[in-house]
Amino acid sequence: MKRLYIVFLIAAIFVSMFCLFSGCSFVQEDLLLTTKSPNNAYTVEAYKTNGGATVDYSIKVYLINNNNKLLIYDKYHDYDADIKWINNDIIYINGITLDLSKGETYDWRKDES
């Protein structure tokens, strides 16, 4: 019985770490807001993700294009989406500025600051 418990615990840790660092398809995403650029060229949707009891909330923002979603912002330990358009191409998301015309994205796992 102890071995089964240890195997289950190791598996749970492995799945949690995998989910944290590579993303999970079973993570619940709740739509927070949808916004368009001033010239209506870009549409973005912000979601709050909930991975369950072992993973903290995060914010994901997708650029919507022809019903395709491109992840442009992914930040762990975020709880809300503060989004402002600087101009037609530049968007401010929770302290991060992205130029969508240049294809800029933000992923907390790749942040070197």
Results as ranks from 00 to 15, higher is better:
L63R: 05
K36S: 11
F26W: 15
N40A: 03
R3G: 08
P38V: 00
F21P: 00
A12E: 05
F8C: 04
L20G: 08
T34P: 12
N39H: 03
D56E: 11
I64E: 05
S113C: 11
Y73C: 02
L71W: 09
A46L: 02
Y79N: 15
D82H: 09
I59V: 05
L9G: 02
D30P: 04
V61E: 07
R3N: 09
T49C: 11
N65I: 15
Y79F: 15
N87M: 02
A41D: 14
K36R: 13
I86W: 03
Q28M: 14
L4K: 08
Y76R: 14
I83H: 07
F8N: 05
R3V: 07
D30M: 11
F14T: 15
I96P: 06
T105K: 04
D89K: 03
N67W: 10
G52A: 02
K69T: 08
F18I: 12
I83N: 06
Y47G: 06
V55E: 13
F8K: 05
W85M: 01
Y76Q: 14
Y79W: 14
I90A: 12
A46M: 00
A81C: 08
A11W: 02
D107M: 03
S25D: 13
Y5I: 03
K48A: 10
I90W: 06
D74H: 13
S37P: 08
S25T: 14
S37Y: 01
S58L: 11
S22H: 13
V7W: 01
I64V: 12
D78I: 06
N88M: 01
I72H: 05
A11R: 00
A12G: 05
I64Y: 06
K60P: 09
K110N: 15
K69H: 09
S37L: 01
Q28W: 11
D30Q: 14
Y42Q: 08
C24K: 05
N68C: 10
D82K: 14
W85D: 02
I13H: 04
T105L: 07
T97D: 08
I6F: 00
K75F: 10
